[in-house]
Amino acid sequence: MKVLFVEDEPVLMQEMLQYFGTQGHLCESATTYFRAVDKVTSFDYDLIVLDLRLPDGSGLHLIPHIKKKTYNTGLIILTANNTLNDKLEGFKHGADDYLTKPFYVEELNARINAVYNRKTLNNQHTKTFGGFALDTQMKTLSFNGEQVTLTKKEYQLLLYFLLNADRVMSKSSIAEHIWGDHFDESDNFDAIYVHLTNLRKKLARHSGIDHIVTVYGLGYKFFSE
């Protein structure tokens, strides 16, 4: 997947490039509106991650350039402004998704994948790991052809882990992904624990391997091997 990141903040840009580079994507960057227009009009991208506030212009104005070039480019908008207005404005202009700063790169990764899967027609629906196959279209899991029943939340958790394999994910990243940002209270990480425990048991029952490890004090890490 070829992705263009348009973001003026160098640290965030570095974080995104670093993480998505390891995801096997071809990543490019633009830190100004001017450079973004240049890139968008010269090259084709599968997906563009666009910060609305750029030092030399609004990211919203870039959208027509993207749409003129190709209708198939996925577009995810980033903004510091959490108002419905901006959200509606973004969708009206043809954004596929919307993420408010600060965000977790794992969440952005999940959104990128979702948008990419929606946009591309010849998309591969199945993700495999250690004998398991997760069908992202049917939302089902199987182990060597045998069906593994998952609850909705367990499926969401597994997909989130799978997309962000080999990364330590904090509990609040997971909570935000499953319950949204309204999920306000850290002591309800218990709920994550319950879901995770069930998921781990189900996976281990079939393969005999615990794919998820607890990282002391920091969260969880998923191993696809």
Partner: peptide, 13 residues
């Protein structure tokens, strides 16, 4: 929001 984003991203790293 921007510095918060940076700190969050760095702490995650």
């Amino acid at each position: 929001q921007t510095p918060l984003s940076i700190v969050r991203a760095r702490l995650e790293s």
